[in-house]
Amino acid sequence: MATLARLQARSSTVGNQYYFRNSVVDPFRIKENDAAVKIQSWFRGCQVRAYIRHLNRIVTIIQKWWRSFLGRKQYQLTVQVAYYTMMMNLYNAMAVRKALEEFAEMKEREEKKANLEREEKKRNYQARKMHYLLSTKQIPGIYNSPFRKEPDPWELQLQKAKPLTHRRPKVKQKDSTSLNDWLACTSARSFPRSEILPPINRKQCQGPFRDITEVLEQRYKPLEPTLWVAEPINELKLAREELRREQWVRNVNDNMFLPFSSYHKNEKYIPSMHLSSKYCPISHKEQFRSENPKKWICDKDFQTVLPSFELFSKYGKLYSKAGQIV
C-alpha cells in the first residue's frame, strides 16, 4: 500500500518525465535510424556489387567458352573448305594433265598415222614406178632372187601395185550450136571439116628415176664452200696491212726522227710562216722585250742564249756510223 501511495504521489511528475525523456530520445533515435539505414544501404550495395561481379565473371567465362567453341567450328569449316579447294585443284590439275596427255597422245597417233599413210603412199608410188621390175614366169626379178629362201617384201608390193601410166588431159572442144554461129559459119556443123588428129602419146621412160622436184632441188642447191675455199690465201698479208693502216691513223707525224744519222742532211730547210712572210717580220728581241741602248753599261748586250751542250757541239765530227762520219 505504501508503494501504491508513493506512486500516486509521484503520478504528476511521471507524465512530465515521460514526455521530457521521449522528447530527448527522439533525435537520438532518428540519428540512429539514419545511421542504420546508411549502414544497411552500404552493406546491401556491397552485396549487390559483389553479386554483379560474380555474375560478370560467370558471364565472361561463358562467353569465352562459347566464343572458343564458335572459333573452333569456324576454323574447322575453314580447314574443310581449304582441304576441299586443294582437292578440287588437284583433281582439276590431274584432269587437265590427263586431257593434255590424251590430246598429245591423240596428236602423236594422228601424226604417226599420217606419216604411215604418207610412207605407204610413197611406197605404193615407188612400187608403181618400179612395176617393170616384177618377176615373170620366165625371168625372176631383182627382188625375187633364186638364192633367197623367201622373196623380198618389195616383190609382194610390186605384185599388189598397178603399173604407173601417164595420161595427158584431153582438150575439150566447145560445140557452139547457136544461130549466130550458124550464120557466121564458125560452127563445126556449118561446113564439113576434117577431124583433128589425136595427140602423139609419148610414154615416159620406165625406170627407177627420181622425181623432178628432187632433181631440181639438187641442181639449184646453194654453194657450200669448204674452209680452204672460203678463206683468202693472203689473209696474213691483209691482216698486216690492216694493222699498219691502224698504226698510221694513230701517228701524229709520218717522218721518223733520227738524231744520230745523216738522213736529214740533204733535206732543204723549210722556214716557218712567220719568217717567210714578206711583210717585215718582227724579230724575237722586239717581240719579247724592248731594248734601250742608252742604258747599256757596256758595249755588248747581255748574253741571252745558253751555251750549247758539248754532246751536240761535237755532232758530225766524232760520232760515226759503220766507220763513216755522221
Rank of each mutant, 00 (worst) to 15 (best):
residue 309 F to I: 00
residue 179 L to Q: 01
residue 301 D to S: 05
residue 146 P to G: 08
residue 313 S to A: 04
residue 310 E to W: 00
residue 221 K to L: 09
residue 185 C to H: 08
residue 23 S to R: 12
residue 256 M to Q: 00
residue 144 N to Y: 02
residue 209 F to L: 12
residue 2 A to V: 07
residue 317 K to D: 13
residue 269 Y to W: 05
residue 193 R to Q: 15
residue 297 I to G: 09
residue 243 L to E: 09
residue 58 I to K: 09
residue 24 V to P: 02
residue 13 T to L: 07
residue 310 E to Q: 00
residue 16 N to G: 04
residue 168 R to E: 14
residue 68 S to L: 05
residue 123 R to I: 09
residue 79 V to N: 08
residue 189 R to C: 04
residue 150 E to I: 13
residue 115 N to C: 11
residue 208 P to C: 02
residue 83 Y to A: 11
residue 31 K to L: 12
residue 40 Q to S: 10
residue 66 W to I: 06
residue 25 V to Y: 11
residue 203 K to H: 12
residue 277 S to W: 02
residue 244 R to M: 12
residue 8 Q to F: 04
residue 182 W to D: 03
residue 19 Y to F: 01
residue 308 S to E: 03
residue 310 E to R: 01
residue 195 E to K: 10
residue 59 V to T: 10
residue 120 E to H: 08
residue 235 E to V: 15
residue 129 K to P: 06
residue 163 P to E: 12
residue 68 S to H: 05
residue 199 P to M: 06
residue 233 I to L: 14
residue 86 M to Y: 10
residue 243 L to W: 05
residue 11 S to V: 03
residue 217 E to W: 00
residue 20 F to A: 13
residue 178 S to H: 04
residue 198 P to Q: 04
residue 123 R to T: 09
residue 112 K to I: 09
residue 190 S to R: 02
residue 179 L to Y: 00
residue 163 P to A: 13
residue 158 L to I: 13
residue 168 R to D: 13
residue 55 L to E: 13
residue 107 K to N: 11
residue 260 F to L: 14
residue 135 S to F: 08
residue 223 L to F: 08
residue 125 Y to F: 06
residue 235 E to F: 14
residue 183 L to D: 01
residue 127 A to T: 02
residue 103 F to M: 03
residue 129 K to D: 11
residue 22 N to W: 01
residue 193 R to K: 15
residue 236 L to W: 05
residue 164 L to M: 14
residue 227 L to K: 04
residue 121 K to I: 10
residue 248 W to M: 06
residue 231 E to H: 05
residue 181 D to I: 01
residue 134 L to P: 06
residue 191 F to C: 15
residue 85 T to A: 05
residue 208 P to Q: 02
residue 289 R to W: 07
residue 83 Y to R: 10
residue 220 Y to I: 00
residue 318 L to T: 15
residue 322 A to K: 15
residue 201 N to D: 09
residue 266 N to Y: 06
residue 292 N to W: 06
residue 38 K to N: 13
residue 246 E to P: 02
residue 312 F to I: 04
residue 180 N to L: 07
residue 75 Y to E: 11
residue 189 R to P: 00
residue 94 M to I: 05
residue 3 T to A: 03
residue 214 E to Q: 10
residue 211 D to T: 07
residue 250 R to P: 06
residue 150 E to W: 09
residue 234 N to F: 12
residue 265 K to A: 14
residue 189 R to H: 07
residue 245 R to P: 00
residue 101 E to R: 11
residue 233 I to M: 12
residue 124 N to Q: 11
residue 182 W to E: 07
residue 45 G to S: 14
residue 120 E to L: 13
residue 247 Q to P: 01
residue 189 R to E: 02
residue 33 N to V: 09
residue 326 V to T: 15
residue 275 L to I: 01
residue 195 E to F: 07
residue 276 S to N: 03
residue 229 V to L: 04
residue 184 A to D: 06
residue 106 M to V: 08
residue 295 K to N: 12
residue 242 E to C: 07
residue 151 P to E: 08
residue 276 S to V: 00
residue 261 S to W: 01
